[in-house]
Design a protein around this nucleic acid. Sequence first.
RNA 1: GGCCCCAUCGUCUAGGGGACCAGGACGCGGCCCUCUCAAGGCCGAAACGGGGGUUCGAAUCCCCCUGGGGCCA
Length: 492
Amino acid sequence: MATVRTRFAPSPTGYLHIGGAWTAFFNWLHSRNQGGTFILRIEDTDRSRSTEEYEAAILEDFRWLGITWDEGPDIGGPVGPYRQTERGHLYARYAQELVKRGAAYPCYCTPEELDAERRRAEAERRPYRYSGRCRTLDADQRAAFDAEGRKPSLRLRVRNLTEPIVVDDAVRGRVVFEPEHLDDYIIVRSDGTPLYNFANVVDDHLMRVTLIIRASEHLSNTPKQFVMYQALGWTPPAVAHLPVILGADRKKLSKRHGDTAVREYRAQGYLPEAILNFFALMAWHPEAEREVYELDELIREFRLDAIGRASPIFDLDKLTWLNAVHMRRAIERDLDRVVTLCAGILHRAGLLPETLSDNQRRYLGDVIKVVGDRLRIGRDILDYADFFFRDVAFEPEAAAKHLTAASAPLLAAYADALAGVEPFERSAIEAALRRVCAEAGVDARALVHPARVALTGKTAGPGLFELTELLGRERAVARLHNAVEYVRRAAV
RNA sequence: GGCCCCAUCGUCUAGGGGACCAGGACGCGGCCCUCUCAAGGCCGAAACGGGGGUUCGAAUCCCCCUGGGGCCA
């Protein structure tokens, strides 16, 4: 049996989005599961919207996700080039071939003429199909049009089909398309550029793709493409149409739904292994009743025929939860990686320089350990640990509740106690706090909460004593005094 | 409008004629733990869209309806 060859073929007209990445991931998973080859092809025939920057960004996002390709525009391969704009000669060759076989013909209809046809069909309330009036033009008539300066497009002959087109889809099962709904469609524009349904077929065949896994929005394109395979005498690859990922409003996930670009998730500090884990749970699920997986488990367990047919809704909460799980693992297994992740986020927030000294990295590592489970995504570092990197700014409600005339003397006493704590580490700090409270005859809570607000500006966050140790004696004492001063000034 | 696809808790899903008064997870609520917030533990509310068949028996098979989605125009 021939080895499996799958592909993903993005248009570089924007950043890699969730839907595309998910589709690519299933292609990749399947090829890895089967020991096959995964191809990346750039569909940049739409020159007005395609840019090199987007292409580079898409490649970069795939690398970040850990989705690697065996053949592609940057590394080449045996059936390249892998960029459609570099394959013009191939499309020209097969367009000619189709004409020679009588399977395609030039169409001289202008947009206005076609529009008129369409409106007539609409007025008569029948479904519009191209009339096919150019399919019978003889050489003289064509020459006349040419002499007029008309530039023909190229259409594929599909109207005379009598047999239904049967698509045996690996996830959808057998789908039958009746020939009377099929139309002669344009494969090459009058300016000579190939259309999607044409370039796609030529590329998939020439690149020896054995299985096309793509979104089901392409399902209706499939019969058209099958006609072309037939016309060229080619065997079509197997197809598998994935459902479409929907937003919360049940419409196809798009920019309207907020963040859809993979790099936006990267910027917020999502982990690629969490995103991939999450991807594996949409329209598919490994056999066990478990949700957290490592990549190698997913590769091992992936089964194309277990893919669901219903459209999943993108659930950000679940992604974030999964990210938290993987984040905990990452902190445990590779703290340095999380340090790098958070350093970037803190830098972009203006709290750290771009490059850190070894000491700064070590300190950030300690901060991350203290924040611990609270770090669901990288960005959370800003909510839970900003005060390690900037002066405190009291949250108004927090200050109103805890920085009061009642707590000020306790804070002052605690500042004095901390000044003498030796060594300055968590258990000694805790003992000092409890001693201050005992002497004042109050419950520890009466000082714990005000102290937290004094040191961090907030009511929620890491353990008070760990955080204090990490802040260091000097900053802790100064912040306590500052809070006392704040109360005094507020009283005036 | 035409064609095609889809349908189990709010969400992701398990289930494929009896194992199902439907299992897991996210989210939500409660309790425990606790210096706060998380994490963790325990408990809870929460679904087979409707109607017809087939069958001794249907979430599971068939048909219709409804709803949703995609593509084309």
